[in-house]
């Protein structure tokens, strides 16, 4: 096991991003808007989804397009403020059969650090990394994050087309 240890592998497990150059920026899927219920703060998601070989990097910023301050759980250092869940995992695991092809997720849970997003301001709520399975032509992947706000959870969605190189 010790031969496999490195800062890259260990801090990947912590959710850190890669230093490698991206092979392709697949999409900026945002904005996909959701409105925090019963509030004058409106959040829009700005996604950046980058593929570097078999690694998928997903970044999400929220923008407040409403007229009042939004209180959301924001990213702090390497720790996301939101859960990335559902469709990404469904999309990856749907084509995964062999154990070695399992999408090894470096997902981090939310770190409950509350931050203000003023009207017109953008803030990062998270960055996540995935190791893609050894399949090609994965196709469209839907991305969904649940962002926690003081007014309750807000779901933001985006999509990307991912081409996974063969192992």
């Amino acid at each position: 096991m010790r031969q496999s240890l490195s800062f890259a592998s260990l801090l990947l497990a912590a959710g850190g991003a890669s230093a490698a150059e991206p092979s392709a920026v697949l999409t900026d899927a945002g904005p996909a808007a959701e409105v925090a219920p019963a509030a004058q703060a409106q959040l829009v998601g700005h996604w950046r989804i980058v593929q570097r070989g078999r690694e998928l990097q997903v970044d999400l910023e929220v923008e407040n397009v409403g007229g009042e301050t939004a209180h959301v759980q924001v990213a702090r250092g390497p720790f996301p403020g939101a859960y990335l869940e559902g469709a990404v995992l469904d999309g990856l695991t749907r084509v995964t059969t062999a154990a070695e092809d399992r999408a090894e997720m470096s997902r981090m849970g939310p770190m409950p650090v509350w931050g203000n997003v003023e009207p017109g301001q953008r803030r990062s709520v998270g960055a996540w990394r995935y190791t893609l399975p050894g399949r090609s032509a994965l196709g469209p992947v839907a991305v969904r994050a649940t962002v926690q706000t003081m007014q309750g959870p807000v779901v933001l969605e985006g999509t990307a087309v991912v081409e996974v190189p063969r192992a």
């Binding site: 800062f7 260990l10 250092g77």
Partner: peptide
Amino acid sequence: GEAGAADARLVELGDADAFFAQLDAGRW
């Protein structure tokens, strides 16, 4: 994050440049 990492020598994980690269890329 990893069982056995505590036993490793720090330099086994990488050098100073690798450490900094991970801190920078990982938003630490």
